[in-house]
């Protein structure tokens, strides 16, 4: 039932392929540290880990240009990191420190960075979709060649916001790249328990948009599909919907007894893990040695250690500034 692990040639130069691998490793190691820090009480609130889904952010975000916009969900650590938000500022944000990318006001679910056009970190399922449509509308009205990529889970496709947004985007032929990360479970509700039509591309196609369905565990497939879709959107073809079929290896949030799926299913999917399957392919092609992998891993871990140190050393925003940033300074009552 579950497809065989991703395989086949990697059509990239060694350096490019290793950069994709390094991105996935950085996400993995950072989030493992987050889980640990959560257990220690350093990170609080909700923490939704992306472990298992790294190929999607690594492959899709890399297909975008610096001028493109990204709107993401509350499971957005990977997208932020690959987009260029520093691990230091991500970790500091999760620690609630002023040095965080949202100054400690957002936390894990609300990573923002204007510098790389990351428009959050939205914790209402489907909430980022209309915003993405508007960003694309603004780009069109200002003659900017900008693609707005909007990431959302398959759970969001049951929300009215999805249908309203894709309808508007298709109606106005806006440059929106709809990136559906289908990890099969909306929290604990399986796809076939929440959708009458489980073929998500069929749903999207009914709005007259182009669609693609790809193996989200295969960073090559993800990257190729995202590039093709972004190209089509950039060329003025209107919105594009890509379904990345992926799987979350860990709990939905930190508390999750995972009563809704069998451990054996998780183990089966782990065989399709994006990191080890991609590493194996690179090794088979002679683009990666075990030593080189360990060196990349060591580098990722060192970056994580630096980020933790940065976050630990960060400062708390003074309580006197509590009411800051409710309004802009010039519009403050």
């Amino acid at each position: 039932m579950i497809a065989p692990p991703p395989a086949g040639p990697v059509p990239y130069e060694k350096d490019y392929a290793l950069a994709l691998l390094a991105d996935m490793l950085r996400i993995r190691r950072m989030e493992e540290k987050c889980a640990q820090a959560y257990g220690e009480g350093k990170i609080r609130g909700f923490l939704h880990l992306y472990i298992g889904e790294e190929a999607v952010a690594a492959g899709a975000v890399r297909a975008l240009k610096p001028e493109d916009n990204i709107v993401a969900t509350y499971r957005e650590h990977g997208h932020a990191l690959v987009r260029g938000v520093t691990m230091n500022s991500i970790m500091a944000e999760m620690y609630g420190k002023r040095e965080g990318c949202s100054r400690g006001r957002g936390g894990s679910m609300h990573l923002f960075d204007a510098g790389v056009r990351l428009y959050g970190g939205n914790a209402i399922v489907g909430g980022g979709l209309p915003v993405a449509v508007g960003l694309a509308l603004a780009a069109r009205m200002q003659d900017e060649a900008r693609v707005t990529a909007c990431f959302f889970g398959e759970g969001a496709m049951a929300e009215g916001a999805f249908h309203e947004s894709i309808n508007l985007a298709a109606l106005w032929r806006l440059p929106v790249l709809f990136c559906c990360e289908n990890n099969l479970y909306a929290m604990g509700t399986a796809l076939d328990r929440s959708e009458s039509q489980t073929d998500l591309c069929v749903k999207a196609a009914s709005y007259g948009v182009q669609t693609l369905k790809v193996d989200g565990q295969d960073v090559v497939a993800v990257h190729e599909a995202a590039q093709e879709a972004a190209r089509a959107v950039r060329a003025g073809g209107g919105p594009f919907f890509v379904e990345f079929q992926t799987y979350r290896f860990r709990a939905h949030s930190m508390f999750d007894a995972e009563l809704y799926r069998a451990k054996s299913e998780v183990e089966e999917w782990k065989k399709r893990g994006p990191l080890h399957t991609f590493s194996a392919r690179l090794k088979a092609e002679g683009k990666l040695t075990e030593e080189a992998f360990l060196a990349l891993d060591h580098e990722a871990n060192a970056e994580v250690e630096r980020a933790v140190a940065f976050a630990e050393a960060g400062s708390w925003e003074p309580v006197e500034d509590l009411l800051l940033d409710v309004h802009s300074p010039e519009g403050r009552p």
């Binding site: 209309p130 915003v131 508007g134 960003l135 200002q142 916001a161 309203e164 947004s165 508007l168």
Partner: peptide
């Protein structure tokens, strides 16, 4: 019609699109 834009009956969608357009540099 670009600047006086009729929308479908999608209050959530077009109000959100207004937010996005404002973030994108417009004054909707």
């Amino acid at each position: 019609p670009e600047r006086v834009r009729d929308t479908p009956l999608s209050e959530l969608g077009f109000v959100g699109a207004g937010i996005g357009a404002a973030l994108g540099g417009m004054r909707p």
